[in-house]
Design a protein around this nucleic acid. Sequence first.
DNA 1: ATAAACATACCATCTGGACGGTTTCTTTGT
DNA 2: ACAAAGAAACCGTCCAGATGGTATGTTTAT
Lengths: 186, 186
Amino acid sequence: MALAHHRKKDPAQVRRQLLDQAARLSVREGLAGVSLQGVAAAAGVTKGGLLHHFPSKQVLIEAMFTDFLAALDRDIDELIAADGERPGCFSRAYVEAMFRQGDVGVDSSCAVLGIAMLTDPRLRELWAKWLAARLDRHRATDSAPELEVIRYAADGVWLADFMEVRPANRAELRNRLITVTRSVPS
Amino acid sequence: MALAHHRKKDPAQVRRQLLDQAARLSVREGLAGVSLQGVAAAAGVTKGGLLHHFPSKQVLIEAMFTDFLAALDRDIDELIAADGERPGCFSRAYVEAMFRQGDVGVDSSCAVLGIAMLTDPRLRELWAKWLAARLDRHRATDSAPELEVIRYAADGVWLADFMEVRPANRAELRNRLITVTRSVPS
DNA sequence: ATAAACATACCATCTGGACGGTTTCTTTGT
DNA sequence: ACAAAGAAACCGTCCAGATGGTATGTTTAT
């Protein structure tokens, strides 16, 4: 009977640990390299214990992604709150958030999960919902076609960052995108 | 002794068949769902035969990707040849090619390979090389920062298409991007 | 005869679970 | 206050199958 069995239960902490270790492992091995056994071992619980919290691998990955979206949401809310201008506020926040993710680089769980959502229909769905809700919420300030182009360009930069074909002058590019958002009437 | 063994050898045809079936399988199952045994069976050869042509899974995937880049290259060359204007010709071709890939939809080997390159360092490297060569070749006509933004936006649209968060008015968006490429001095 | 192309058999490892058992915590009853 | 019962949290083991190979044998082409 292992020592590990004799311990005080702290389900919230175990769950958090599992998610953190899953994120850490995904950064190192890519999401395809994340196995249930690997996460469980890294978090110091058994696979059975992990499966208590996350009944399948898909549930674990979705929980990781939900965490990621929540963090992105917070970032964007902060950026909008700090922005002095209403027109284009979401688009500016979006550009900044995408550049921030690129700043961190390939070796981050944001990058890993960003890519993961591309390969998983369910994660794509969650993203599509998130984006639709955000666009709906910011319809009054961010619906101009020019802003749409800018947001796509921000996605493209995010992709380029991930692909490590980074823009030669990133700061200038960011300024250019932000500048456009300020010149668009709502 | 299987019947398959008693047949005329046609290595070029077998290789082509392997690549085609690999592409087909990747569309249906995603690239993570493509196994050596699966490809071999679909192509009507044994795994041993497959491994003769492609000594590892990585080599097979890179061959698929090289095929994809070759096809993209041809598309872009055709688009440029048909373009009446020199300034921004590569960017226009690039926008068109990205929209074409989006037109086909998620269920295509282009989409699958596009995503695959995001997850594989070697494929990312091949993409980065391809892009760098193209940008170098078109430096005289396509180096303006505005065109860079447009190309990023095209990438973002490609990503959105893949995510199935498609632009509401795609034709208009395409025109808008193309129009910008025509208004940029070289 | 030799090499290329392909087939067949085998390998070790890993995977996502399923499942029964054990421990800890919470609730209920006295 | 204490004990018993039930539920939640976790442990440890087992499973069947799949994986990317490796090794050896057979067939075809030159």
